[in-house]
């Protein structure tokens, strides 16, 4: 299941937003905007497009909220919508123009994580981010959802409209490409 973070779900805000309370939904947007934007950015690797994806995801969430039954956590549901929007928009954009990847975004380390995790995250550096961004979109999407957010193969397959076998193949290929990129570069530089 997608990463939930430390923030508790806010049932009261959700109930009000479901009844059409726009102010309550705005509060939910403020609470969840960083995680939605981060996921979008990892998927599309472009700041502007990630902002568009996040906005569209929240608008779709607002429209579909009366049908949200609470089977999944709200943040999990939002993640799924974000993946769908990112997948659709990036494919649409690629049809129209070949955009270079946004090279300028860096991943600041969140202040709330443990020192050990913060040190590990800092140590990852730019190389992993660059290597991830260089993966083709279909491969990157599977790697991000599986290895970063912990989705299962069947969840990934269901959301991307591919078979479980195809999801596994993309994951295998993506990890291999990351390994080659990260360690071959490192060994060459030594």
């Amino acid at each position: 299941m997608p990463h939930e973070g430390v923030r508790p779900e806010n049932g009261e805000l959700l109930a009000r937003a479901r009844r059409g309370d726009r102010a309550a939904f705005s509060d939910l947007v403020r609470i969840h905007q960083d995680e939605v934007y981060t996921l979008a950015l990892r998927l599309v690797a472009d700041r502007e497009l990630a902002a568009d994806v996040s906005q569209e995801a929240f608008v779709r969430a607002w429209r579909a909220l009366p049908n949200f039954r609470g089977d999944a956590k709200f943040s999990t549901w939002l993640h799924r919508i974000t993946v769908n929007v990112a997948w659709t928009q990036r494919r649409k954009q690629r049809k129209h123009r070949a955009d270079p990847i946004d090279e300028s975004f860096t991943e600041p380390v969140a202040e709330t994580i443990s020192p050990e995790r913060a040190a590990e995250s800092a140590a990852i550096g730019d190389r992993l981010r660059d290597a991830l961004n260089d993966l083709p979109l279909p491969t990157r999407t599977v790697v991000v959802l599986k290895d970063v957010y912990g989705w299962t193969h069947s969840e990934i397959a269901g959301h991307l409209g591919i078979s479980v076998a195809a999801a596994k193949v993309r994951l295998h290929r993506g990890r291999k490409q990351l390994r080659d990129r990260l360690w071959v570069e490192f060994e060459e530089s030594v």
Partner: peptide, 19 residues
């Protein structure tokens, strides 16, 4: 890769207002 789950990127300021 798993460690990236703890790393958040701040959303651009106008996002909530735009929504």
């Amino acid at each position: 890769l798993a460690a990236l789950a703890d790393v958040m990127v701040a959303a651009p300021e106008p996002l909530s207002a735009a929504v």
